[in-house]
């Protein structure tokens, strides 16, 4: 009896390994091997032979030194994209949580509003988004009339808002932050589609009974949000922060720089070193964010 059960468990675990086999093969040959190779490349001077092979000369930390102190742009691009990330993540988070709460309430035309709000998930990624921006710039950039039309479209004047806010006594950095958010609202909306989806799913999983109790006890909508909704979705805030950070890789300037170093300058070692510096920086950011945020997160279960 005991022996038979053991073989069943063993069978099950073998079956499990069979199920993950495609992934495991892929992981070993298409992830782990390239990852190790990439470390190897980053310490080498690499030359590609026209036939298909390549040669490696070990040169120690020279590539890393090159990336950080010789390359004219890399430091600047790296800090710039990091500060952009730090600037964007709170905005995207705030906007997506706000929009998700908005979409979670009942109102006439909600399916329609939802359909529109998730359109950026489909459209705002990769090539098409990039071409879209360049296309629109072209259209408004070249002739006088088009320029005037462009100015008309940009009818909103941020100065009025700035004055109102500074009259209200808000600190200057905060005003700047708000204004940059308003000016780049399209960009923010574009990059928060998936985050809205995640928050919306989280909001729907909050038990209704909690809201009922709060209502009976006489809590206002504001209190309900901060005492119930916010703690209940807080685990997903961490998920969304991480998603937003990862998502920023895809159209980051650093990725472009790494790509160009490899395939235009043909300096594969330097490119590998750059990508490892980038990976290291991102991991540090992710670890810090993870530790900081997970302290504040409330887990219901």
């Amino acid at each position: 009896m005991n022996l038979k059960r053991l073989t069943l468990t063993q069978k099950r675990s073998l079956l499990g390994i069979l199920f993950i086999m495609p992934w495991l093969l892929g992981f070993v040959f298409l992830f782990a091997t390239p990852l190790l190779q990439s470390i190897h490349f980053s310490f080498s001077d690499m030359k590609i032979a026209p036939g298909g092979g390549y040669t490696l000369d070990f040169i120690g930390w020279a590539n890393f030194k090159n990336a950080l102190s010789v390359d004219p742009n890399f430091n600047r691009i790296l800090t710039q994209s990091l500060s952009e990330m730090a600037w964007n993540v709170p905005m995207i988070l705030f906007f997506s949580l706000f929009t998700a709460t908005l979409l979670n309430t009942r109102f006439v035309g909600r399916p329609f509003a939802r359909a529109i709000f998730f359109l950026p998930v489909i459209l705002a990624s990769g090539a098409i988004a990039a071409a879209q921006t360049s296309g629109l710039i072209q259209l408004t950039g070249s002739s006088e009339i088009a320029k005037e039309l462009g100015q008309q479209q940009n009818g909103f004047d941020p100065l009025t808002l700035a004055f109102t806010l500074s009259d209200a006594g808000l600190p200057m950095w905060f005003i700047e932050y708000i204004i940059s958010a308003v000016e780049r609202i399209y960009e923010i909306i574009k990059s928060s589609g998936v985050q809205i989806l995640i928050f919306l799913a989280a909001l729907q999983s909050v038990p209704v009974s909690m809201y009922e109790v709060a209502k009976m006890e006489g809590a206002t909508a504001y209190e309900t949000f901060w005492k119930i909704t916010f703690p209940m979705v807080s685990p997903l805030i961490l998920t969304n922060i991480i998603y937003t950070i990862i998502d920023s890789f895809t159209n980051s300037q650093v990725t472009t720089a790494i790509y160009n170093t490899a395939f235009q300058a043909q300096n594969f070692g330097l490119s590998a070193a750059m990508s490892w510096i980038y990976t290291a920086v991102i991991s540090v950011v992710l670890i810090i964010v993870g530790i900081l945020v997970s302290r504040k997160v409330f887990y219901y279960n």
């Binding site: 992981f27 091997t33 990439s38 990862i246 890789f249 990725t255 790509y259 490899a262 490892w276 990976t279």
Partner: peptide, 20 residues
């Protein structure tokens, strides 16, 4: 390790994959 594949930027694997 699956989660790790989500977190590592794809540019890190770019050159080895290309050569591969």
């Amino acid at each position: 390790l699956v989660v790790l594949t989500i977190l590592i930027p794809s540019s890190t694997l770019m050159v080895p994959m290309y050569i591969h």
